[in-house]
Design a protein around this nucleic acid. Structure first.
Length: 374
RNA sequence: UCCGACAUAGCUCAGCUGGUAGAGCAUGUGACUGUUAAUCACAGGGUCCCUGGUUCGAGCCCAGGUGUCGGAGCCA
């Protein structure tokens, strides 16, 4: 395209722009820390511009899907009065009467209330974790969508998560596939990787492999036996009853080119509100969806304990204060029913779809352990 | 909290066995003008993260500290 300029107006002069063009070798002229310090300008870069538009597409797809499938948006509060699952992972702030308010780390408990009132609901907003996690998968402020439905069991919950995720990925691909291939890779090697990655995403169709925790443990044991590196063997140590660590998830998902659904975790390592398998009380009716290519857990969910007596026992076993949960227990006391739901992390999903190394690029202004600027 | 790596010009980095600081880009001046990652010439630009130590001499070696990044744990 060629333009014949008839008139030129300088709207604003810009001298010594802090972010430079690519170097002659084609590599980045700046390291990630510098770029994050200039996030307010960096987002004008075409790669960042695309990533944040993919995020917007995925967010719209989340709302469209749930709205069209009978879910009502009923948001959970962000301030909560009590620390539900331990204060160490919560940000505390001063409340009016000298007490503390905590920033929500999940809207789920409130979604159980709204689902029992409206049938199918979801909340979608920022979530806060005060964990001192410094990894490419963690932010201290991130966005999570949490659908919850009455009369839904864990199997229907997994069906929903599967269908939902397929819709999100395919919607993002339909809209952005061409520009993702054109813009995201910065060299020939990355371009080849992106071509393969887009094929993987095209293959994100139902059904996903569903692997029981028991089976996953067996597979990880087999993977561990193949490892030659002693360090890696140590990291992959596993036995029934242990929760998975990142190395377990990463190695397991490398074997698949679709997201996998792992279900039936040991109840002992899961949250107090998870319903137990009536046939195997040591197993919880929860599941995780693990993205391929090592992107980790993008969905966590399951069926909730709807039996008042069993729930009380779990609260005692986890040494939680029952008074904090009086309203939550009311939900079982008056008109309860089987119900289930899940949470999907927006940034991890966007990072996976875009094939990014780090989730910090998937949110306009990342908040991490060392970053409150800009 | 634990483990590891790194910290040199505005930015990205090099710097040998310890001998007193370099490149590219950016910036300034000039040349050129069909450019689009412009090109050419010249120039300016440094608390080598901080403190202490070893040494005739430390960007380099040692100790402590600070900061950044990655990983573990925890999780989306």
């Amino acid at each position: 395209m060629e333009l014949t300029v008839k008139k030129l107006t300088v709207v604003s002069e810009s001298h010594e722009y802090p972010i430079q063009k690519k170097g002659k070798g084609g590599g980045d002229e700046h390291d990630p820390g510098f770029l994050m310090d200039h996030r307010h300008l960096w987002m004008r870069d075409r790669r960042q511009w695309l990533i944040l538009r993919v995020r917007a597409t995925i967010i719209k797809a989340i709302r469209d899907y749930l709205d069209e499938h009978g879910f009502l948006l009923v948001d959970s509060p962000i301030f909560t009065g009590n620390a539900c699952e331990g204060t160490t992972t919560l940000f505390a702030t001063d409340w009016f009467d000298g007490s503390k308010a905590y920033l929500s780390q999940s809207g789920q408990l409130y979604q159980e209330a709204t689902a029992l009132a409206f049938g199918k609901t979801y909340c979608f907003g920022p979530t806060f974790r005060a964990e001192k996690s410094k990894t490419r998968r963690h932010l201290n402020e991130f966005w999570m969508v949490e659908p919850e439905a009455a009369f839904m069991d864990v199997h229907q919950d997994m069906d929903l998560a599967e269908d939902f995720l397929c819709y999100l990925v395919q919607t993002a691909l339909t809209k952005h596939q061409a520009e993702m291939l054109e813009i995201l890779p910065t060299n020939a090697e990355e371009k080849a990787w992106m071509e393969a990655h887009l094929k993987v995403l095209q293959g994100v169709q139902k059904p996903f492999p569903r692997i029981s925790y028991d089976e996953a443990v067996r597979q990880i044991e087999a993977i561990r036996a193949e490892q030659k590196d002693a360090e890696q063997q140590k990291l992959l140590d596993i036995h029934w009853g242990m929760d998975f660590g990142s190395p377990h998830e990463t190695e397991l998902t490398k074997r698949y080119d679709k997201p996998i659904m792992v279900y039936g975790f040991p109840a002992a390592v899961k949250a107090f509100y998870m319903k137990k398998d009536p046939n195997r009380p040591e197993v919880a009716l929860g599941f995780d969806v693990l993205a391929p290519e090592g992107y980790g857990e993008i969905v966590g969910g399951g069926q909730r304990e709807d039996n008042l007596e069993l729930l009380n026992k779990e609260i005692a076993r986890h040494e939680l204060n029952p008074e904090s949960f009086l309203w939550y227990l009311d939900l079982r006391k008056w008109g309860s029913c089987p119900h289930a739901g899940f949470g999907l992390g927006v940034e991890r999903t966007v990072a996976w779809v875009c094939g990014l190394h780090h989730v910090r690029e998937t949110i306009p202004f990342a908040r991490t352990l060392e970053r409150l600027w800009p």
